[in-house]
Design a protein around this nucleic acid. Structure first.
Lengths: 203, 203
DNA sequence: GTAAAAATGGATCAGCAACTCCAGAAATGA
DNA sequence: TCATTTCTGGAGTTGCTGATCCATTTTTAC
């Protein structure tokens, strides 16, 4: 693709960023289809033609938003799991996730999952980008489990690949139920049950 | 709500059903925003005004589609869990879910979750309807676990409310990853891990 | 300093999709 | 039978939104 073949001056890069950030925020709140480029234009404080100067069309902007959310969400998760090496730390992570949903009033769910669900069957590039984000996320969790193997918390023969995938699935399913029910209860149930299972494996 | 205050003749009810079924199918494949009423019109073989004769606007049709999918999906799951009373039966259910996704080439994911993700923050009635579907689904799973308590497979003091929620979350998260990665592997990982956990509790 | 490239503003276009209207056909019920 | 209600067909209309154009200003590079 490489549509970013244009050279960007610092000012241009800043403008591009403002557009992507505004679009990300609006699409998180109003959905992709519910976000018009006019909204993005106003929110980012740019003119219509700017958007088309930096992105060939709306789909290209959406893909940039996916990349942006991948970095924003997964980078944070990678950071959280980098020093995650005990069951207690896992429970602390759980607390953070739930507290965050509480602050959001259970609205929006996972930004990456939201984009994936909305675009999954319509835009294959988008789906692929979302899958990449999930892959990075799963790897981050797996590295945490690997550290727990290294320090003896988890048995070495454990299939942490499968366990990390199951953990991510529980989290995502929990977030979905949390969003739909407007309650953190199901998210808590999902994460606690999965962490209990990991704790059982540790014993 | 009760917008179905109009009397429906058998013929009218059939037409209404055809519209809802066509809309459900199209929205599953192309998403809600990607489905135009013109498509629905053609697919159902009716004229434009028919749709507005039976539904005040597109949102009303969407809500009817949610009700339709709730019945279609959850009723099947209720039936599956009605006679689910052993770990082996749980694994057989897992096989069915995975086989179904295989047949779909991992496309579309869960119809209810798809509608919820697309409409969650835009249409509160829709979100509420989706939540209701999930609630019924969770209850079905819980009843299955209750039967397993009755026949001694699971300990009586177990919190099956939480366990059923966690199982549904694992399933939904697994389906999402399955759809995004176009592979049943993550779905298998999620369901197997959760069923293993239930099996541990049974021992 | 100056020419080329990049960035910006804003008016405008064009197509599509939700929704409307109304006339006429079919069914219902007495 | 006949009046009333329900159902159907399809040609509009309207507003919105993605996309375009081009003139102008700002920045870059030599």
């Amino acid at each position: 693709m490489m549509q970013t073949a244009l050279k960007l001056t610092p000012k241009g890069a800043a403008t591009r960023s403002r557009i992507v950030e505004a679009a990300a925020e609006l699409m998180f709140v109003n959905g992709v289809a519910g976000t018009t480029l006019e909204h993005v234009r106003d929110e980012a404080g740019v003119s219509s033609s700017q958007i088309y100067h930096y992105f060939v069309d709306k789909d290209a902007l959406v893909r940039a938003v996916i990349d942006y959310q991948n970095d924003a969400v997964v980078a944070e998760q990678e950071n959280a799991f980098a020093r995650l090496d005990s069951i207690a730390a896992l429970r602390a992570w759980r607390d953070e996730v739930i507290a965050h949903q509480d602050r959001m009033n259970c609205k929006g769910g996972c930004p990456i999952a939201a984009l994936g669900s909305q675009l999954g069957e319509l835009d294959h590039d988008a789906r692929s980008g979302v899958a990449q984000g999930f892959h990075r996320w799963q790897a981050a969790i797996r590295h945490g489990f690997h550290a727990m193997q290294d320090n003896g918390t988890l048995p070495a023969e454990l299939d942490i690949e499968t366990l990390a995938t199951a953990m991510l699935a529980s989290l995502q399913g929990g977030l979905l139920l949390c969003q739909m029910h407007r309650s953190t209860d199901p998210l808590r149930a999902a994460m606690d049950t999965m962490i209990d299972h990991v704790a059982d494996l540790a014993a």
